[in-house]
Design a protein around this nucleic acid. Structure first.
Length: 424
RNA sequence: GGAGACGUGGCUGAGUGGCCGAAAGCAGCCGCCUGCUAAGCGGUUAGGGGGGUAACACUCCCUCGGAGGUUCGAAUCCUCCCGUCUCCGCCA
């Protein structure tokens, strides 16, 4: 949620920033709703002040004088009752507008509206490596290994659901453990959060109301399945005031993630690139506004370290302003090279959501001097299953369909699983 | 699934119609005092939204889980909703 007072005081920067999201008129709609709300508010408040004064006098008055004062104030009360719906509507209009308008992109987010407009900022290799043989895609490798069951997944649950089997399960565990170890060493404290969450948590993170189509909802309990542990991690401090001295606060959440993937029909079918259910280790940070951009780079560096450890060729792109999720002011995607697709595909990402989520969550910070302020939040993927497994399988495959698991994962693996071998 | 209790400020907790945005304690902050530390003494500290200011000051409105209602007036009375906890049952 944006800060309506700052918009009122200095709307032009907001106008310009939101125009980059194709929402050039949003600021004026906001200002209009704000103006309406304030004018009704001041009328109502004048009447209420009169009513309060009268009530005080009545409390002190006696007998007939009392009755007379009561009769007089009735007129004011009547007027107030009439204005009430008007005020409620004005407030609701502003509130719902604010709820759906996304964060303002940071100046360093490039112009544009699609993933094509993202700007590469770095990579960990020169040219994509050439395997020297015709690479198989991960679905084929998974089938050859007998470790990825897509048809049976579909039979049980529908498309975009899979079974992982055999040693690939241990590779997932190894990956999770490795990612967790890396991020914990960087100061993130481990968490296993709830994945079914209340509406406030979804609203606070900005997934509701705008992204409702992508969220699973339980039928009888009005609980939502989190698409990322960002949701419960952010909500961990919902409504709280954190001491400046305690910041930054960093959590690493391990959870299963559920996404409806509405609107992605036909994209990335087969295999496990785009699943309705996958496991992920997610970083989440609460910090002061003045440190959040540094924190963002820090999180990016951790993500790069993890992919580097996995010996995956990747590049980092700065996502275009118009392609950002609603809460983000800036986002990096790290795209891993997938030999079978001959393309870079998103493996992880990290966003600075500045004060957008924190304001919705009412998570604030108390400065050493006692002042209250909305803080900043950030999130980033440490490792996401499905995609990271794909990158490992495709990049470390051998001509015979076996897969070498990167050395950094070996300490977490049964020895036989250091190489995944096809069934003969 | 059945029964009951409760929701008040940063925290604990009092408050059953006007003197209450709210006792007391804790915690925090500012002083004082005391070789240091600890203790002690005095003062002070809720949040949000308008107006106002260069910024303060000042001022008004709202907020005691939420939404309605009764009343001139509600933390307090009524209705509904939400949430939390406890006991019993069931259960990974």
């Amino acid at each position: 949620m944006l800060d309506i007072r700052r918009i009122r005081e200095d709307p032009d920067p907001f106008r310009a920033a939101l125009a980059r999201r194709n929402l050039g008129d949003a600021v004026d709609r906001l200002l209009e709703a704000d103006e309406r709300r304030r004018s009704v508010t001041s009328r109502v408040e004048e009447l209420r002040a009169a009513q309060n004064r009268a009530s005080k006098a009545i409390g002190a008055a006696q007998g007939g004088e009392k009755q007379q004062l009561i009769d007089e104030v009735a007129k004011v009360s009547g007027e107030l009752k009439e204005l009430d719906p008007e005020l409620a509507k004005a407030e609701e209009d502003l509130r719902s507008l604010l709820a759906e308008i996304p964060n303002v992109p940071h100046e360093s987010a490039p112009d544009g509206f699609t993933d094509e407009d993202a700007v590469e900022v770095s990579r960990n290799h020169e040219e994509p490596p050439v395997l020297g043989f015709e690479p198989r895609d991960h679905a084929e490798l998974g089938a050859m290994l007998g470790m990825l069951e897509t048809e049976r997944g579909a039979r049980t649950s529908g498309s975009r659901f899979v079974y992982l089997r055999g040693d690939l399960v241990f590779v997932q565990f190894a990956l999770m453990r490795h990612a967790m170890d890396v991020v914990v060493e960087k100061g993130f404290s481990p968490m296993i959060p709830p994945v079914l969450v209340r509406e406030e948590a979804m609203y606070g993170t900005g997934f509701l109301p705008t992204d409702a189509v992508n969220i699973y909802v339980t039928r009888d309990d009005e609980l939502y399945l989190a698409g990322t542990s960002e949701v419960p991690l952010a909500a961990f401090h919902l409504g709280e005031i954190l001491d400046e001295d305690d910041l930054p606060i960093r959590y690493a959440g391990y959870s299963t993630c559920f996404r409806r993937e509405a609107g992605s029909y036909g994209k990335d079918l087969g295999g496990m690139f785009r699943l309705h259910q996958f496991d992920k280790v997610e970083m989440f940070a609460f910090c002061t506004p003045e440190t959040s951009w540094d924190e963002h780079e820090r999180i990016l560096a951790i993500e790069e370290e993890i992919l580097g450890n996995l010996e995956i060729p990747y590049r980092v792109v700065n996502v275009a302003a118009g392609d950002l999720g609603g809460a983000a002011a800036k986002k990096y995607d790290i795209e891993g090279w997938l030999p079978a697709q001959q393309r870079y595909r998103e493996l992880t990402s990290c966003s600075n959501t500045t004060d957008y989520q924190a304001r919705r969550m009412q998570t604030r910070l108390r400065r050493a001097g006692g002042e209250l302020e909305v803080l900043h939040t950030l999130n980033g993927t440490a490792t996401a299953i499905g995609r990271t497994l794909i990158a490992i399988m495709e990049n470390h495959q051998r001509p015979d369909g076996s897969v070498e698991i990167p050395a950094k994962l070996h300490p977490y693996l049964p020895e036989r699983a250091r190489v995944l071998a096809p069934r003969s």
